[in-house]
Design a protein around this nucleic acid. Structure first.
Lengths: 314, 314
DNA sequence: TTGTATGCGTTATCAA
DNA sequence: TTGATAACGCATACAA
């Protein structure tokens, strides 16, 4: 930049201003600086130096674990997309993080924990030590973090009531791995069906869910409905039930969670629809606030029951 | 770090070495430095300063466009996962890039273009100007980039021959949007079926594919097989064919591309399996080589035909 | 194995 | 609107 400034006949600081626009520069000077840059093949301020001086990298980490696990469930995508949109607009980029502490050496302005069923993250302590702002999606909230959550319990309760209204009394549930969302949803379910049987628990993965529910249905259980904790699980239950000759919802009602579309099924799932994009936007806004040093309040977003064709009278 | 060094009674450079391990430091000194750091709450070298000094950020961009588009097709995930694994092990992180030029201000050591059907990226010129190494996945290769590709044409040809061997003569193809992979695959198909009819073209998305093929089948075309350019498309064709009362593969054979699993179908697709993880690893290795200033050679990976239950005698 | 000295390329402060 | 100057926090060449 010094060369560019010299070539343009201005000082280094003026050249810097011409690029950053942080203070007014006369159009003529700016023009000369840009021309000098072009003729010297200078592509603009070096991001590394700029980062050091400004104390900011423009990089926000998002901890999702393994991609093929995190994004196997389509419900994860719209949320991350929304985060990305908001951060992009503010000039920040999203860096994918696994859960190893090596990331401590990366220049992160903030970190998002998109919990995905995890309970702990080994990088937490490191980030606290470095004063890196953290935003946690779907809890649990740790000290110093901002929490963006949805109303798991209320959603689960609404779905349970819907089934109860349809006359169901013997209900089972296919759970996610132990986590804050799972515990909250189970609590909501048990407000209506205290004795709901547990089918099993697995990630939000078609194969895993189908295998578990296959074993369960083979034992010819005495239930009229299965409540799942994700639509991917619910779709797997529908597929498996049919494979066993059961009619859905005639013989078995199936409930989901998330509100994604399942185009490969010929019915729409009854599900608890969560505002995925809103969740992402709220997350990104909390991140930006924390980076700016402003306080960020926790958020709990509402969900709505969407009745489809996978549930019917008991 | 100066404070830590003072506290430990060593020089700044020794403290630096104690943290980086780039030169030998006596265990005793190192111990004292680390203890001093702990007692002062110093979490290790500031990444921003370290980055400037070393001329490297540890951040590698990956341009995939919109996440919910790029990762809607499960085939994209294992590849990115493999990239992430290799880069992680080398201390690099993956930053998701859309296609806007704002990313020019981010500290990127290299950029991966995971083409996903795109032909152009607006950030290319900027990155060239900044001398940022670029690796392009599935072409076309631009000047200065390293190309990691698969044998699209050979795979498509093998699938076409398989159908020809089964007696098929009237074959149609459902294409991806215009792109290097699509053109190569079409060329492979036409080596065997020069007159293959075009069903249409769309992204690798279930809904889009099903809509297109629905219109096509409604016209009761005179074909015995449909070759798709992704397994997601192929699954959609199977679903739609059955919805119309056609037996697969009795009335219609369907071929795919990618080699993913489709657990919600009760048959395995006949498909061209590509080495997704190998592709990711090769990509990451090319990135690391280019960052290290070493030459990186282009790569073309082989594919294999995997015969499943979606194709049968004409 | 440790210490001294220098500069990485900016941006911000302040004065002109 | 512009210019002089001082950090930003570290890693390395070199000398000891």
């Amino acid at each position: 930049m010094a060369d560019v400034a010299a070539r343009a006949g201005v000082s280094l600081s003026t050249a810097s201003l011409a690029f950053s626009g942080n203070k007014p520069v006369s159009p003529a000077t700016r023009e000369r600086v840009l021309a000098a840059a072009a003729s010297l093949g200078y592509a603009g301020p070096n991001p590394l130096a700029s980062n050091l001086r400004r104390g900011r990298s423009g990089v926000v980490g998002i901890a999702v674990g393994r991609l093929s696990t995190a994004f196997r469930d389509p419900a994860a995508l719209p949320m991350v997309d929304a985060v990305s949109d908001v951060l992009d607009a503010a000039g920040f980029g999203l860096l994918l993080m696994g859960d190893d502490a090596e990331h401590a050496r990366l220049p992160l302005d903030a970190v998002i924990y998109d919990i995905c069923g995890r309970e702990t993250w080994t990088s937490y302590d490191d980030l606290v030590a470095r004063d890196v702002p953290m935003v946690v999606v779907e809890g649990p909230a740790w000290p110093g973090t901002t929490l963006i959550d949805i109303d798991h319990r209320g959603g689960a309760r609404a779905l349970a009531r819907h089934l109860h209204d349809l006359g169901h009394r013997r209900v089972a549930t296919l759970m996610l791995e132990p986590s804050h969302p799972q515990r909250e949803r189970e609590a909501g379910l048990r407000e209506v069906f205290p004795d709901a049987e547990v089918v099993g628990s697995c990630a939000s993965d078609h194969d895993a869910a189908q295998a578990i529910v296959s074993d369960y249905l083979a034992a010819e259980p005495d239930v009229t409905a299965i409540v799942c904790q994700s639509d991917v699980q619910a779709a797997a239950v529908v597929v498996e039930a049919r494979r066993r000759g059961l009619d859905v919802p005639g013989d078995l009602s199936v409930g989901g969670f998330d509100g994604i579309t399942t185009p490969w099924l010929d019915l729409e799932l009854t599900t608890v629809e969560q505002p995925l994009a809103d969740k992402g936007r709220a997350t990104a806004e909390a991140v930006l606030a924390r980076i700016a040093g402003e306080p960020a309040h926790d958020v709990v977003l509402p969900v709505v029951l969407r009745v489809g064709g996978s549930t019917g009278p008991a």
